[in-house]
Structure formats: C-alpha cells, structure tokens
Design a protein around this nucleic acid. Structure first.
Lengths: 339, 339
DNA sequence: TTGTAAGCGTTATCAT
DNA sequence: ATGATAACGCTTACAA
C-alpha cells in the first residue's frame, strides 16, 4: 500500500507538504496542492490512521462501554452514539461489559491501551471499581446514569425520580388506585430512584404502594412474565402495573393476555425506555421515554468539548417524558361498577 | 503515562527484553522476567496498542459493517461477533452503512485507513460497489448473505431458498391452503431466494401462491402492518401469512388483532430471523431461525484462519431451521366446517 | 538469554 | 510556502 513517501516522491515534494495538504490546516501553494492531490489519487493513497494516531496522539476514536449489547435500549444508544461520533469524524470502539465488574476492568484496561479520545461508560452495577480506576486517567470520561458522586468524572443522568412520578401521575389520572410496580435490580441506584419517585407520588395522592405490589425483576422478559403472573394471582389484583423497562412490560402483557385478561380494559400496563419494543407489541405500550438521542449526543459532545478545552458542564440531568399509547386506559372501577 | 522505556530502565534491562516478557513468545530468564513484571506493576504500565499496531502491522481489531445497528437481527449479530472477537483477543470496530452505497464506500475507506485485521461485511443492497472495491485489498474479508459471485471474497450465506421451503412446509402441514407472503425488498437477492423457495414449494404441493398474496415490504413494522391490513381486506383472505422477517410478522399480528381476529385461530402468522422479537410479542411468533451464533463465529474464524494462512473454505452455506411457537396453528377450514 | 539499532508511517519543530 | 529531521512507542532482525 502506498505511503506518504510514495506520494511525496511522485508529486516532487516533501512528506511534510503532503501531510499539510491532507490535514489542510496549514496553507499550501495552490499548484503544489493540486499536484499532491493528483498523486494521492493516482496512487490510491490512504493515510494510515494508526501511524497518524501514534504521532498525533489521537486515533480519532471513541470507546463506548455498555452492559449489554443485545438490548433494545442499549442498541438504540449505540446507534445514536455511532451516528454522532461518525459525524465528528471519529469511529466507535464498542465494548460489552456484560454487567460484570471483573469483565469491566479487563475491558477498561483494553480501552486505555488503545488510547481512545474519549470514553462513554454506561454501567449497570453500582459496585464496579471502574469509576475509581477511571479518575486518574487523562482521557475524558462521561458516565451515563450513574450517581455515585465522583466529582472527578463527568456525569449524564436521567431524572429517574421524575420518571417514577410521571408514571404514577399517568396511572392515577386514569383513575387507578390499585397500582403495582415491577422494578429492575434494586441494588441499582437508578431503579431505587425510579421506585422512590413512583411510590412517593402514590403516597402523596392517597394510594400508597402495597408491599406485595412491588416486585423486583432483572429487566428480562421472563422476569416481567413471572412478575405478571404473581400479581394476577393476588386476591385483589392490581388494575395497573408500571414496569421499569419495556421488555418487562411486554412480559406482563403476555402474562395478562395468557390469563384471559384484556389490556388495557382489564389491566393497564406501562413500561419505560421507549426503544423499539413499545411499537412492536400489541397493544402498543404506554411508556416513559428516555431522551436517548439527546443523551447520546450530549455525551459525545461533552467529550469533544473537553478535548478542545472548552468549558463543559460536568453534570447534566435530563428529563424523561410520558408517551401514551394503547396499553393504559381508564381503571375498571371508574368505568363500570365499583371494584 | 509510563512507556516501555520507563519499565526497561526501572527493571535494568533493555526495551526488547520488556517486549519479550509481555509478548511471552520468546523465552526470558525467569529472574529477569520477574523483575520486569514487578516494574510493570509498579509503574502501572499498559502497552500502547497503537504503537504496537503500527510496528507489528496488526492493531488486533476486526471491523464489522452492518446496514443498520438499530435492528434486532443485526444487534444479535453484533453481540455474537463481539463475543467471539473478544475471546480471540481482538476488538470490535463497528460501522453502520445505513444501507447506503455512498455511505458504505466512505465507511470502507475509513476501515482501510485503520488497518483492521479483518472485515466482516453484511450489506443489504446488491448494487453496492464495495465488494468490488474490496477485492484488491490485502485484509481478509467475509461477506455475509451476499451472493454475487466475487470468488475473490469469502462468503458466508444462509440457504435462503430452504428458509422459504421450511416456511411453506410448516404452513401446508397445518392444513393451510390460502397462504400469503410478505417479502423484503425484492431487489435483494436473498429475498428473491426466500420467495422462490416458498412459492415453488407451494406450487409443487398444489397450492400455488396467488399474485395478490405476495406483498413487498421493507422489513419495517409499518410495512408489516399495512401489508396485513391489505391482506385482511381481501374478499377471501389468507388463513396464513409468512413474513420474511420477525418485525413485519409482528406488524401483521397487530393488524390482525386490531381487525378483531385471533392469532392463530383465525389467521396464522410466521416470521423469520428469531432474534428478540418472537418471544416479546403475543402470541409468540413461529419463525424461521437463522443460525446467527454459528454465522457470527464462523465469520470471525474465517478471518483469523486466513490471517494465520490456514486453508479456509471460501464459501460456507448454513441451513435455517423452523422454530414453532404460538402464532401458527391448524387452518380454520381443517378444524371446523369447510371454508 | 540479552542488548543494539533500525524501522513502522505519520506529524511537529525548526529551519530556510 | 516548503523541506529536513526528529520523534511517537513499540517490535524485530541481528549481534553479542
């Protein structure tokens, strides 16, 4: 493959001139510039980004760490981050941490060896040592949805408490009083926050969450399904359920329909995330949407701005929003006779 | 950050010795080896993969090109490829071609500049010039699901004709005779193959596909939904539909249920791919599964073996399989009275 | 077994 | 505006 020397030789200039033509940061005489460009084309020359990365200390790539690739939410995130990263002339290095602290550390090591220009880190395990390992590092890091206040790292978090409140308000507004919640792993701060917002809002409005009506899941379809089955088996079953992600909500819907119930006529179900799942299932899921596009873009921008020594907010909080679809409706009691 | 020189200095050896200790390909005296390791730990030294990549001409990374990241099928593929790549000590560079030939070429250029160790390329557009551009290249390339016979490139394809046959056999076996098919973009060879297998099998068994009963879609939920609506509006509607991916099948299910039909009692629906969607919707989708795990692993192995100068099959064909779930059942005619 | 030294293909610095 | 030259941090002949 042709190198910058071959181009220089062919164009009758030095390698520095070729480099200048390519980077187009430093002015070059128009005629020599054209000669160089011609040589580049004739030789089908492609600058070697590895070499360039070594010398300029930037391989123009961003590392994205997610706990799970095969997940609708993270898949959307990967897509958005990728678009944004490409737009800025960078590439995406993708790492799956498998929600495993040990794996995370190994992956991090790898990442640092590759000298990426920035790291976007979405962990779903609050015990990870990685954030602390990340503090000394010279590359910009943005943590997504983590709260442990390592003020040294940039943070981009969702207002998870508000997510719970929005869900509660929506269901209360439809007349529901017997409301259940299927949470994610309770050890996750973000799940606890969502639940707190949800239950506090219910309590404030006079319909406190019953202990039997909060079930912990692991964000999987099966967790949703079995939580649904348990809730429906209760003597006085709930008329509405909020699941802390859409996949579990889909599981609950399956459990309900399998049990001969109609959604939302007999029971309302809502989810969270608003990535892919809600439209695919029937009835379409009402959900709490995360501003995933904005989150992804902000993360990339925070990194790029830090790199450029711009002044950057070190902590950004974004608001979720309600997206009403078909899976929630008026409470049975408020439509027909008393429950 | 500490470099190999710092380590060498601290351990009182040369940089080559340090390099040997790290690569552990060349024997090193046990005692010096330990001294070096200690120095590495003390300095928290991490070999720079950019520098190593430049010198050794291998950055230990594999490039994966997919037409769409935010898609259940490709998401699964990305996950499997990543696992396999990591297992072999490589990293994944992900590229979204957006099913756009122009974008593909730009992305390819980028890929070549990065001197990846191999390229796995899954395109969903047969007109792309990329494969021809790829022929001269010195890095191993594996094409997924492309048929245009550039014998210069390695291929890994699904037996798409068999996929159509399996679908037809399944529905015929359940007693269906009025059967429809919602295809992907007809310009794609793989879609044409699936349809050919499907319709030839039906014709062979005396239930040829009616022209009105094949509808072209674009693999999207909306395409499935509107195709479903059109099919259900027909005077004599089909009793079974095969969609060439699961997302469109989900759209058809939604159309059917919205029209007041039961699945599968009134109409059977089946999909293809078997990635994420079939379990999430209700009823769970019967589908034609692609052996995605095997495909992904084979692709990575083909690259690694080529790199190691092993003899490699240049063309691998894998078989799909039927996964029966709840969305298909006996034809209405064959259960109750005649249609 | 270990050290020396020459690159890998760029870019950055300093001249001119 | 352009050229010579020295890095960047590592690997790898080759020599010892």
């Amino acid at each position: 493959m042709a190198s910058i020397r071959d181009v220089a030789r062919r164009a009758g200039v030095s390698t520095s001139t070729v480099s200048r033509v390519i980077s187009r940061k430093i002015p070059v005489d128009k005629r020599t510039g054209e000669r160089v460009m011609r040589a580049i084309c004739e030789l089908d020359y492609r600058p070697n980004l590895i070499a360039s990365g070594l010398r300029s200390r930037s391989a123009r790539s961003i590392g994205l760490l997610v706990p799970r690739i095969a997940d609708p939410f993270f898949m959307q995130m990967i897509d958005y981050v990728d678009r944004c990263v490409i737009e800025h002339g960078f590439n995406l290095l993708l790492f799956n941490t498998h929600s495993d602290p040990a794996f995370e550390e190994q992956v991090l090591d790898n990442l640092l060896r590759r000298h990426v220009d920035g790291i976007i880190f979405s962990s779903v395990s609050d015990e990870s040592r990685v954030p602390s390992l990340l503090i000394g590092v010279e590359v910009p890091v943005v943590m997504l949805d983590r709260v442990r206040d390592d003020a040294k790292l940039m943070h981009l978090v969702l207002n998870n408490r508000m997510a719970g409140e929005l869900a509660a308000e929506h269901l209360l507004g439809l007349g529901h009083r017997r409301i259940a919640c299927v949470t994610g792993p309770r050890t996750l701060h973000l799940c606890a926050e969502r639940l707190a917002g949800f239950s506090e809002c219910l309590a404030r409005r006079g319909s406190p969450l019953e202990p039997d009506f909060t079930i912990e899941g692991d964000f999987s379809l099966d967790a949703g399904r079995s939580a649904g089955e348990r809730l429906l088996a209760a003597q006085r079953r709930p008329t509405a359920v909020w699941a802390q992600n859409d996949v579990m909500a889909a599981g609950i819907v399956k459990a309900a329909i399998s049990a001969g119930l109609r959604v939302p006529e007999d029971i309302s179900v809502m989810g969270m995330d608003d990535a892919m799942i809600p439209e695919v299932v029937h009835p379409s899921l009402t959900t709490i949407a995360q501003p995933l596009k904005e989150m992804s873009e902000r993360a990339v921008e925070m990194i790029l701005e830090t790199r450029a020594n711009a002044v950057v907010d070190r902590r950004v909080i974004l608001d979720p929003s309600l997206v009403a679809r078909q899976s929630t409706g008026a409470a049975p009691e408020s439509r027909g006779g008393a429950g």
